[in-house]
Design a protein around this nucleic acid. Structure first.
Lengths: 120, 120
DNA sequence: CGGGATCCCTGGCGATACTG
DNA sequence: CAGTATCGCCAGGGATCCCG
């Protein structure tokens, strides 16, 4: 099954997801929101070094993709809460698989890199 | 399990893998090599529109990471064969999970995008 | 507080030409 | 054939300031 072979089409769904997964902050945001809704600043602090512009871009795109919802409270000071949708939540599983693979094979990768570098 | 929480460290294994997965050609190369070793040109043609410089970069990095092996035959004309290592092969499963997720949820994403765009 | 506006800059990627 | 060499674009990301 895997891919229907259309992965090589830039418009292939897999490619689209890969683009999202590949960008720097989407995965982090999903993981942070995993334990419940968060405010802008909480996401910002949780992620670390992110320019607000960039975080906004990421969150907007995630909202557009239906991964999160954005709730604005007309208060002073303003409050905005981001929540993972069921769709967004369902992304955690695939990410976990990837994460597990990474952790399990990191030693092998490191070893390979070291050997490769030494051979040069 | 999922992540040990260190995903937020840029040096985290998951981040490293995400970088690889996120780049444009690594996943495609893995998928192509899935059915057996291939030559440079075969990979090039299989992927589509790739500058040779970029493909070389990708393959070198994959070789360094231990995902593929590179065999050079001292012939004329030269022949170079790329083969998936067991490590590289083991990456197919996680990719498949991602791919499956993408295909299963594409309609939901598309719908979300359409609705979002309409709301603007 | 949650961003929008603005400026900048790096590097990933592309195209083309050339060589062992 | 399998790259290397060179040049160049531009989008993603960063930093800073400001505003409702």
């Amino acid at each position: 099954m895997v891919t229907k072979g259309n992965v090589f089409d830039p418009n292939c769904p897999t490619r689209v997801i890969l683009d999202r997964i590949g960008d720097k902050w989407t995965v982090l945001a999903v993981l942070l929101l995993r334990d419940g809704p968060l405010r802008f600043t909480e996401l910002r602090d949780g992620i670390g070094r992110v320019a607000p512009k960039v975080l906004t871009q990421t969150l907007r795109r995630m909202e557009r993709d239906g991964l999160i919802t954005r709730e604005v409270f007309a208060e002073i000071p303003p409050r905005v809460v981001y929540t993972l949708t069921p769709l967004g939540t369902s992304l955690i599983a695939p990410i976990s698989v990837l994460s597990d693979w990474a952790e399990n094979h990191l030693p092998a990768i490191t070893t390979a890199q070291t050997r490769y570098d030494a051979a040069v």
